[in-house]
Amino acid sequence: MDRRRFKRRLRGFAVLAVLLALVVGGVIIAINYLNENQTLVRERCTAVVGPDSYELDPDQASNAALIAGLAVQRGLPPRAASIALATAVQESKLRNINYGDRDSVGLFQQRPSQDWGRAEQLMDPVYATNAFYDVLVEIEGYENLAVTDAAQQVQRSAFPEAYADHEAEARAFASALTGQSTGALNCVLRKPTAVGDPQQVLDQLTTAFGGLQTSVNDRAVQVQAQGSTGWAIAHWAVANAKALNIAGVEHGGLSWSREQAEWAVAETQSDKVRITLAGPEDVKE
């Protein structure tokens, strides 16, 4: 090979090396930019059942977790949670709104004028959800009714057929949030905005599930729970990770972390649900 050709090839390799360095550098800069600019992360919570998946915003998922948790606390079947979730999705999009048709308010758009309670009571998601279940359980054989029929007998809606539109989504979230499926609810979230408070987590857990055997160790809340109850609590914690500044959840040989945003095999096996709260090092500056 003559010297002229050799120099041309050498220059070509140099140009390629520079271009490759620029590409790699650009990728690294982009990754760092995404990590530092968390506002670009689209926050969402996903429930997966078989090949199907359904999404809610974190605030919606938190309300869904409360509705399902209260069903577990009351000893109701998962079908009750499915009916309640389908109803709340249709009525309020799972948001605790203070307005609606005529005097309707809250998650279920219940009306004070229809003897559901005072407006301020119906704006309490716990009161509103229990009021819904109080009527539902009085319906004979509601577990075997179509969602549309069961929801309509509770709500007396002008558009009863609309409840059926949300049945598959409600079933997916009910399955995860009542603990019938494992590692089935995942949330993609930005970095925490504050350090987690163990007492706040304990208070919210008690509201959703009633009395539990719990302990606090540093920044971790541990709950003694097995089977479907354990997974209901684990999924509840993921659904509330944004609101309660939760960094990670571990149960049944699986672990979820806010950083990885997925369930993976845990390093240890435990019959407890371990909820790890965000510390100063986790908080977005």
Rank of each mutant, 00 (worst) to 15 (best):
W116H: 09
W116V: 07
W116T: 09
W116L: 12
G117I: 09
G117F: 05
R118H: 05
E120G: 02
E120A: 12
Q121T: 09
Q121K: 10
M123L: 15
M123C: 02
M123Y: 04
M123I: 01
D124S: 11
P125G: 07
P125Q: 11
P125K: 10
P125D: 10
P125R: 09
Y127I: 01
Y127T: 02
A128W: 05
T129C: 08
N130S: 11
F132K: 07
F132C: 11
F132L: 13
F132S: 06
D134K: 08
D134Y: 10
V135M: 04
L136F: 08
L136R: 00
E138I: 00
I139S: 06
I139V: 13
E140K: 12
E140G: 01
Y142E: 07
E143T: 15
N144I: 01
N144G: 15
N144Y: 03
N144A: 08
L145V: 02
A146G: 11
A146C: 00
A146I: 00
V147L: 02
A150C: 05
A150M: 07
A150S: 08
A150T: 00
A151Q: 05
A151Y: 05
A151T: 01
Q152N: 15
Q153T: 01
V154L: 05
V154M: 03
Q155K: 12
Q155C: 05
R156M: 11
A158D: 14
P160L: 08
P160E: 04
P160Y: 05
E161H: 12
E161D: 14
A162C: 04
Y163A: 07
A164L: 05
A164Y: 02
A164N: 08
A164F: 00
A164E: 15
A164K: 07
D165E: 14
H166W: 14
H166L: 03
H166S: 11
H166D: 11
H166V: 01
E167F: 05
A168D: 15
A168S: 14
E169Y: 01
E169M: 15
E169F: 03
A170C: 12
R171D: 14
R171G: 00
F173W: 09
A174V: 04
S175V: 02
A176G: 06
A176Q: 03
A176M: 06
L177I: 03
L177C: 06
L177K: 01
L177P: 02
L177H: 04
T178W: 11
G179L: 05
G179H: 03
G179Y: 01
Q180S: 13
S181L: 14
S181A: 14
T182E: 15
G183E: 03
G183R: 02
G183D: 09
G183V: 00
G183K: 00
A184M: 06
L185W: 10
L185A: 07
L185D: 08
N186F: 07
C187Y: 07
V188M: 07
V188I: 13
V188D: 00
V188T: 15
R190D: 10
K191Q: 13
K191H: 12
P192I: 08
P192G: 11
P192N: 11
P192C: 12
